[in-house]
Design a protein around this nucleic acid. Structure first.
Length: 279
DNA sequence: CAATCAACCTGGGTGC
DNA sequence: TGCACCCAGGTTGATT
């Protein structure tokens, strides 16, 4: 469940540990070779071998490593991916599929229990195209209530599903959408176009707050998320509703038993008292 | 165009 | 104790 705060946590640490380092050698798992792929007819192994990592950036839930050759290494962790940086002599981590030896005795290791995550080598225009497909970054000045209000007016769908749409806002996932809707006191099934300016203002503030808090706490770890040092994030302790509905817990604000249902194909938890159905 | 849903995976949990 | 089954969710792509 790496979402924006988890990916940003990985990016910040990776920035310190791998920018300026040269990749000397790669090892791709024989049992899962497609973990490493490419676009634009690039051979990923020969392209990465000898390349120096020039920067570590993030767009939505994508990690973007710029190479000195001008090409990019794009990493997506999907649900259970881990990007670790450790001493070369450490044994393989659990579910390790790819390792890159750096010029300072350290390795980048990529592991993924569920094999959804990918490392892709792409030309610069593919990064532009990817960025163009993704929506607004919620922690930038572009993310305003005026913008969101106007965007939501065109969306008849449920607010929960609309907030998960990466083409509109880049980086929100199931955890932070449930948390933001709870803070903004908005029922997840509310049609997006029915939110008034007051709702949207609260929602924008709530999204920014839950993301910034999670980054401060180095992300939310439920089972598998770790930063490149192999450390868990501490934000799970600060979540108000996510993951609590099925345990029969009560609203931390009013004590009402939390409600749970599948919304837009995602498990969703909310407080039926603080987030009443509209209409 | 927008919404919906299956598919991709597999460890961990549940129920019998 | 063992086993079958279900669940978690980010993204893509097919379908409605």
């Amino acid at each position: 469940m790496p979402e924006l705060p988890e990916v940003e946590t990985v990016r910040r640490i990776a920035h310190k540990l791998v920018v300026g380092r040269r990749i000397e050698r790669l090892h791709v798992s024989e049992s899962f070779p497609c973990v490493l792929n490419s676009e634009g007819g690039i051979d990923p192994v020969s392209t990465l071998t000898g390349a120096t990592i020039a920067s570590a950036q993030r767009r939505g839930k994508y990690l973007l490593f710029e190479l000195d050759s001008g090409l990019w290494m794009v990493v997506h962790l999907r649900m259970t991916g881990r990007l670790l940086v450790m001493d070369r002599h450490e044994p393989p981590v659990r579910f390790e599929h790819l390792s890159m030896e750096l010029d300072n005795g350290m390795d980048i290791r990529f592991g993924d229990q569920r094999k959804f995550g990918r490392v892709t080598v792409v030309p610069p225009d593919a990064v532009s195209a990817l960025s163009g497909r993704l929506g607004v970054e919620p922690l930038t000045a572009d993310f305003t209530s005026a913008w969101l209000q106007s965007a939501l007016q065109r969306r008849p769908g449920k607010i929960k599903s609309v907030l998960l749409d990466q083409h509109l806002i880049a980086g929100l996932g199931n955890i932070y959408v449930d948390e933001a809707l709870f803070r903004a006191r908005i029922h997840p099934l509310t049609p997006a176009r029915d939110l008034d300016s007051n709702d949207v203002e609260h929602l924008v503030g709530a999204i920014v707050d839950v993301l910034e808090m999670a980054i401060r706490n180095q992300g939310t770890t439920f089972s598998t998320f770790e930063n490149p040092y192999g450390e868990s994030g501490s934000n799970a302790a600060f979540l108000k509703v996510y993951g609590k509905g099925r345990k029969g817990e009560t609203c931390p604000r009013c004590g009402t038993p939390l409600a749970r249902a599948v919304v837009g194909g995602r498990g969703t938890t909310w407080c039926p008292h603080c987030q009443p159905a509209r209409g």
